[in-house]
């Protein structure tokens, strides 16, 4: 391990350029440590975003050597090439400045996909669902999304069709269409069907490949495709 890293960091918004920094190497150093070092020691004007530093909040995702990653849990040793790192903002999202992207479009699509639970039961009359219930198992497989947008930034379909809801919103919708307590199923299926929804997915599985939580949005989208198509054929969509 050399004593220094050559780090290129994107500076600016739409118009910008990569700026080179030299950062000392450290044991168990993460990419977020590198960015924080630059901001605290070399250039305080660097804009980036993070909160928890332990892989829970989903705010620190960036493009590291061309691949979208959660930077707080990405060790430099895992991604460094020839002692060099290139750090850029996430793709498919407007850049506010430097490494900070505007996430509104990403989260607005969760709302468009009816990503909110709508129930009718009260605490006194709650639904009893077995832990090994098939739908419950589907929900468990997709529920741990932290909203980091790594999947969204890695999705070519989002690049080609900016109106595509994207893997995270569709994964969220899949967890809800499997929720027996939810009462907004038809509206949700209608919202996620079609060319801006699940049927635009080409099943390239970049989202599944890159999800830092090892979720499988591709599987969720495949489930939605089949469910919405069956409902449409039966005239219930």
């Amino acid at each position: 391990m050399s004593s220094e890293l050559q780090v290129s960091v994107w500076r600016g918004a739409g118009e910008g350029r990569f700026v080179a920094y030299r950062v000392p190497r450290a044991v168990n150093q993460t990419v977020l440590d590198v960015v924080t070092y630059i901001q605290r020691k070399l250039d305080p004007s660097l804009a980036y975003r993070y909160a928890c530093r332990v892989g829970m909040c989903g705010t620190c995702a960036m493009t590291v050597n061309g691949v979208a990653r959660w930077t707080c849990r990405t060790h430099v040793s895992k991604v460094v090439r020839d002692d060099a790192l290139e750090i850029a903002p996430l793709s498919n999202l407007p850049v506010i400045r430097d490494l900070a992207t505007d996430m509104r479009g990403f989260f607005d699509k969760w709302a468009k996909a009816h990503g909110q639970f709508r129930g009718t039961k009260s605490r006194d009359d709650f639904a009893k669902i077995r832990p090994d219930d098939r739908q419950r198992t589907e929900i468990d497989a997709g529920i741990e999304c932290i909203g980091c947008a790594v999947c969204y930034a890695s999705c070519d379909v989002v690049t080609w069709r900016p109106d595509f809801l994207g893997p995270a919103a569709l994964n969220r919708a899949w967890t809800l269409v499997n929720d027996a307590r939810d009462v907004e199923q038809r509206e949700r299926l209608r919202a996620v069907a079609g060319d801006a929804g699940c049927h635009a997915c080409h099943t390239q599985a970049s989202c599944t490949e890159r999800c830092p939580k090892h979720l499988e949005p591709t599987r969720a989208i495949a489930g939605l495709k089949l469910m919405t198509a069956r409902e449409a054929v039966r005239g219930r969509l």
Binding site: G194, H199, K225
Partner: peptide, 14 residues
């Protein structure tokens, strides 16, 4: 094109 039509087209293609 409605979402239902798009979903049916997808099914037809599959």
């Amino acid at each position: 094109m409605s979402a239902a039509t798009q979903a049916r087209l997808w099914y037809a293609q599959r």
